[in-house]
């Protein structure tokens, strides 16, 4: 009998699989397909203080072994999330949920995070300082160690629950940003958000995405994510949630060996809505194949 449980900031997850923000909505599209209590938890759609329509369409483009998105943080706003989405979620999901928070100013991050922090269903706050698809927010905070630390410290003071800071790969030195967030009080970091990218429609001689650029995700970015999780593991002592192109139980093991305590599954959910359930079912078999009895023991195993 293998043990797939992992600890994430004092909360035990049945397994390290966490559907990533922006690929799992507020849960109920997937609840129609399977019992969404099977993953460790999930990170809900990036939420801002005010409702946001997001970017114009097209928001989606294909890439070799991946896709670009430029959704632009479409969400109903924190008040509607609390009054409408969370009560609906409570009917289909009984675990603590990860609240993904984005914003355009430190004050906005603080306000949205503290409102969600007071919700009993919320287990962790995941601070998205790395959205590449909005201007003047998101990644503007996450690409400099000083601003990343400042927003982390401000939110840390305002919330009681574990604070996870989600990092951008679109930086020269992700380890220094992770270390700055740790120093500012982050309880964990999650990485990577999408890689800034672009496609051009050669027939139209114009960008495919209405927003010109978008974030690349999918299998194409998996080796980048493994490398960055490895580098951040060397630089911090807080837990790392690894993500970026994971689509199999073997990928989960690899990401954990690079240093992840838990993992998020993103775009794979969009291609195969059953992927998280299937990976969770495959994990014990893959663990046995690689002589892993206790999954949490392999975090960082490749560093030793």
């Amino acid at each position: 009998m293998v043990d797939t449980r992992v600890d994430l900031c004092g909360i035990t997850l049945d397994n390290p699989i966490i559907p990533a923000s922006g690929t799992f909505g507020y849960g109920y599209e997937f609840a129609e397909l399977y019992d969404i209590n099977c993953p460790g938890t999930f990170s809900f759609k990036g939420t801002t203080a005010s409702p946001r329509y997001g970017n114009p369409t097209p928001r989606i483009a294909e890439a070799p072994s991946g896709m670009l998105n430029s959704v632009g943080l479409q969400n109903p706003g924190v008040e509607a999330v609390i009054s409408e989405e969370l009560p609906k979620l409570a009917k289909v999901f009984s675990k603590p949920v990860m609240a993904n928070v984005s914003g355009f100013s430190t004050e906005e991050y603080v306000r949205t995070a503290s409102l969600l922090d007071s919700q009993a269903q919320v287990g962790w706050i995941e601070l998205n300082i790395s959205c590449p698809n909005v201007h003047g927010g998101g990644a503007a905070f996450g690409t400099d160690p000083h601003t990343a630390a400042a927003v982390t410290a401000a939110v840390r003071k305002a919330v009681r629950k574990p604070l996870i800071v989600k990092l951008s790969p679109n930086v020269a030195d992700i380890a220094s940003i992770a270390a700055a967030c740790e120093d500012a009080g982050a309880d964990a970091v999650s990485l990577i958000n999408t890689v800034l990218a672009m496609r051009i429609d050669i027939k139209k001689r114009a960008p495919v995405l209405a927003n010109v650029t978008g974030g690349l995700c999918g299998s194409a970015v998996f080796p980048i994510a493994v490398r960055m999780v490895w580098q951040v593991y060397e630089a911090v002592s807080i837990p790392i949630i690894g993500m970026g192109g994971i689509s199999s139980a073997q990928d989960v093991v690899e990401m954990m060996m690079a240093g992840a305590a838990a993992v998020q599954i993103g775009s794979a959910n969009l291609v195969d809505p059953y992927i998280c359930r299937n990976i969770i079912r495959q994990l014990p078999e893959v663990m046995a194949e690689y002589s892993i009895d206790v999954l949490s023991n392999i975090t960082g195993a490749a560093h030793r």
């Binding site: 922006g22 690929t23 799992f24 909505g25 599209e29 997937f30 759609k45 329509y53 997001g54 369409t57 097209p58 928001r59 989606i60 483009a61 896709m67 998105n69 959704v71 479409q74 775009s267 959910n269 969009l270 291609v271 809505p273």
Partner: peptide
């Protein structure tokens, strides 16, 4: 243009 086709990704709003 769609991402998932079943309402999860907000790609085709």
């Amino acid at each position: 243009r769609m991402g998932c086709g079943f309402g999860a990704c907000m790609g085709c709003t």
